[in-house]
Design a protein around this nucleic acid. Structure first.
Lengths: 342, 342
DNA sequence: TTGGGCATCCAAAGCGGTTTGAAGCGATTC
DNA sequence: GAATCGCTTCAAACCGCTTTGGATGCCCAA
């Protein structure tokens, strides 16, 4: 059942039927009702491919996911972000197309997406400092929103980010207030922009209290359980081990916890741990009661909002770049306590 | 730059240019070279939207992801599967479109995908027993492949699955051979088909050795760290606690490990643990040396193969339903050992 | 009576490709 | 010399929708 058939059945022209269904004013209200009823009765759904060609819009948004080296993107945080963005897209009748490509094909993919007209815009994931994708997308004229920020990019661009610096600064201050002075930072890989900002926040809080950041207490690695475990184990073996940790994710935090516990120490008493909690829907921090003290910011909500921003940019291309900074909450759990005496 | 412009520039008809670029035989080889060169020179890429309308094919595959109750789908296993499938799609110039929809809209989504012509086929994730999606997709005539199987479906359909029953049977036998007789099963939710098959394998191995499965040693819950922890903690508190565990995922296994360790027991000596390892790219089981003994089967590879099967089904709709059963490897790690005496 | 304005509706021209049916043309065959 | 054939190429239809630029009929003011 297509438009022409439906029009014939109604004794109307395709034009009128199309207009009736799309809510244009120049059609009699009685006629419109007749058309709408017939469309429902015959289960008519306009062909997306034809709409796309006729309107010149793809009604789709792209997410390009590089694999190989930066496989970090295949992680639960990403999945939750996608879920959030996807909710926004379905609500707006947009398709979400995912391109999984080898790192070296990334530029080609973006250019292809634009010139072949597969999508109306893209979301840029996991920005690094001086991320070349931003200039590229601007050059080829493909609307985009960055999830995160890319330090070192001159011109303004659209982004939505969590205030990672502030979050880690507050978390550090919270520990300092509990009299911890040796605080380990188990950070993500520091070519990622957010990881740098987190370290900045951490260092800023320390120096503001007159404590010089100790390189031995800072680790930067993938945000996996094993990496968290190793970093924490290493730090706990120091002559002056930390009494508290900042972990960059729930998973890292689980590694830290394992390290602490297998040193025979008790979390929240001997060693405090604060994690950054992306509020993943499949891996909640505690169920009713928070277990980890955490800086919390829902990555799923970030996905929803980033997608909304992109759709807005697509709809109003001349409105100028938008930016939005979300604040993380500090959730007090059971993994922190006053620094042990001595 | 579109086809007509390119044709004009070459002094040829659009027909010939189209054929030259698509490798049709009825075009002079010299002409073809000229066309191909010009296309590259002018950076011509045929408009996907036009191709789709003209050919009647969407050149896209759908993945429908229900949220809300069955949020289990937003998990790292899913992300890795998607990554694998995505590799196949990009290699074949297909788009992967993800639809994230509330559970109750799932049927509507499938029907819409079909009638609006957004995709040429779909992959069905996380099948349950008597999964209604299979009948639905057959009814509406949308090609599909199921990742997993749905017990209770009468007619044959396309699927690709891991031999979960056999995997858990072998793992159980391995523990039995190590003289364990009380083995805890920390299973996923048992409305999921694979979870049932795993329990069947586990129970089968036990009864084959004359051991009656003990309901107190079987748990079924979400495959999270906390659920694994709770299940294992509960079982370890039994009058006759298990000396070994089977965990249905790496994450559950981490919960089991935490439970074991916080009971003051040592993994691999006091308590053995075997996990099912989906070989996630972001969360490897050990780096060089396996840590957990595991039944391993790469879900990413499953994604690749399932996608290939679907593309084949789309290309040859009359070839009849395909099925493929992958075997899991048994990886011997450091988390298993002989049952303690006594 | 005339004509402007308004409310409705429609024919036809796109959108940018693919594909069908036919035509041009030199070479081969009878 | 005419008919046939294979190799190339092309004009035009088509995919299913949107959108432009009328047309039609009716009402009302002049």
């Amino acid at each position: 059942m297509n438009l022409k058939e439906l029009a014939t059945k109604l004794g109307l022209s395709p034009t009128t039927v199309s207009r009736a269904l799309n809510g244009y004013p120049e059609v009699n209200e009685t006629t419109r009702e007749r058309v709408v009823a017939a469309a429902k009765r015959h289960n008519y759904h306009p062909n997306t491919r034809a709409i796309r060609l006729a309107t010149g819009r793809a009604m789709a948004v792209g997410h390009v996911i590089p694999i190989a080296t930066r496989h970090e993107i295949v992680n639960p945080v990403f999945a939750d972000f996608i879920a959030g963005a996807g909710e926004t897209y379905s609500r707006n009748d947009y398709d979400m197309v995912l391109s999984v490509v080898p790192d070296e094909d990334e530029e080609t993919t973006y250019r292809g997406l634009k010139s072949k007209g597969n999508v109306d815009g893209v979301i840029v994931h996991a920005p690094r400092t001086h991320d070349p994708r931003i200039a590229l997308l601007r050059e080829i004229g493909l609307p985009f929103v960055v999830h995160g920020r890319a330090t070192g990019t001159a011109d303004p661009y659209c982004w939505l980010d969590v205030n990672n610096r502030r979050a880690f600064q507050r978390a550090t201050e919270f520990l300092l207030d509990l009299s911890h002075s040796r605080i380990g930072l188990v950070n993500g890989l520091e070519f990622m922009d957010f990881a740098i900002r987190r370290r900045t926040g951490y260092e800023g809080a320390l120096t503001a209290r007159g404590i010089a950041p100790d390189p031995a207490l800072m680790a930067s690695d993938e945000m996996t359980e094993i990496a968290g475990f190793r970093a924490a184990t290493r730090m706990l073996a120091l002559p002056q081990p930390p009494t508290a940790f900042l972990a960059s994710s729930m998973i890292s935090g689980m590694g830290v916890r394992r390290a602490v516990e297998s040193s025979g120490l008790v979390i929240g008493r001997d060693v405090s741990v604060i994690i950054h909690d992306d509020d993943l829907s499949y891996m909640k921090n505690g169920e009713d009661v928070p277990i980890f003290t955490a800086t919390r910011s829902s990555v799923r909500e970030a996905g929803r909002l980033t997608a909304e921003m992109l759709l807005d940019v697509i709809a109003r291309p001349d409105a100028g770049p938008q930016q939005r900074l979300l604040e993380a909450e500090l959730i007090i759990g059971q993994s922190t306590g006053p620094a042990p005496k001595g």
